[in-house]
């Protein structure tokens, strides 16, 4: 007989974990889903941010979530520069399919190996004042180490959605996903818009990195498990649907956490992949997406 309290706890912490997956996937939903730039180095960039934040915060005691907001613009600028390179060398030549994928894969390896060379292969983490505290909701515990990053990621996602709906640039980003040429007639340069949007997606990776380092210790290769997770979430959502990405991430967090509770945490990486394959085989357009095959 299953213990209902155990399951309730697994579901609640799965939802909190889902918020982390949501912010980790949101950047990829923008770059892969909306801009059609398959940035498989996205999880590696997130882990890079985690390590930078850990290096900044562990000795000084500065809060990692605030630090993430501070370094996000730096990552954004780097991302914008990276997109310019990508556009110049791959998109314009029409070489995205193979050379572009290889480029991001090479970038992922270079980031990971650089982290190993600079920080060593050990795990890094940050001590926070709230790390050991927990809110109780009846028998269900809400550890602050999970709750605060979850709230931060929800706030950032809300800001992102508002920006995409309300601002001119934001709406142009949504437009570039639908029809690049039509955008030109409206007097907006699609390449400039894509540069802004890709920069934003990398900035989101930095914020996700800040959330990640609060939730769990990180090593140079932590990105590997996230590759399966974030791609599963983005595809499950239907490429480019941001509210769908949030829902898919929450569903995913719950499924993974309940699996870990029932069968042991060693099996949780397999959840991402099985789900990903199931989605690709059965419903490649995702839960909320239009056909994109």
């Amino acid at each position: 007989m299953l213990d209902p309290v155990l399951i309730a706890n697994a579901v609640v912490s799965g939802l909190l974990l889902g918020c982390l997956y949501a912010i980790a996937s949101m950047g990829l939903a923008v770059s892969f889903g909306m801009l059609d730039v398959v940035n498989i180095a996205h999880p590696a960039m997130m882990v890079l941010a985690s390590c930078v934040i850990a290096a900044l915060c562990a000795p000084t005691g500065f809060d990692p979530l605030l630090a993430a907001l501070l370094i996000a613009p730096v990552f954004g600028l780097l991302g914008a520069g990276l997109y310019r390179l990508y556009h110049l060398y791959f998109e314009r030549r029409g070489d995205e399919a193979m050379q572009g994928l290889a480029f991001f894969f090479g970038l992922m390896i270079v980031i990971e190996v650089s982290l190993v060379l600079v920080y060593g292969a050990d795990q890094r983490w940050v001590e926070t004042g709230y790390g050991g505290l927990s809110l109780g909701l009846g028998p269900v515990g809400l550890p602050l180490r999970m709750l605060l990053p979850a709230l931060m990621s929800l706030a950032c996602i809300a800001a992102l959605l508002l920006w995409l709906r309300r601002s001119f640039t934001g709406r142009a980003v949504a437009a570039v996903a639908q029809d690049r040429d039509a955008l030109r007639f409206l007097g907006a340069d699609p390449i400039r818009i894509k540069t802004v949007a890709f920069g934003l997606s990398v900035a989101l990776a930095a914020i996700a990195g800040g959330c990640l380092i609060v939730v769990q210790p990180v090593d140079a290769h932590s990105g590997h498990v996230f590759i399966g997770r974030v791609l599963a979430v983005v595809i499950l959502a239907g490429l480019g649907s941001l509210p769908g990405t949030l829902v898919a991430a929450l569903v995913f967090g719950v499924i993974e956490n309940v699996t870990a509770t029932l069968f042991g945490p060693a099996w949780s990486p397999a959840v991402a992949f099985s789900l990903l394959l199931a989605v690709l085989a059965l419903r490649p357009q995702g839960m909320f997406g239009r056909a994109h095959a």
């Binding site: 399966g228 992949f273 990903l276």
Partner: peptide
């Protein structure tokens, strides 16, 4: 689309 095959093989190693 080809990119889905790439993505699936990428997580195959993890699983």
């Amino acid at each position: 689309r080809g990119v889905y095959f790439s993505i699936a093989t990428l997580s195959l190693a993890v699983v």
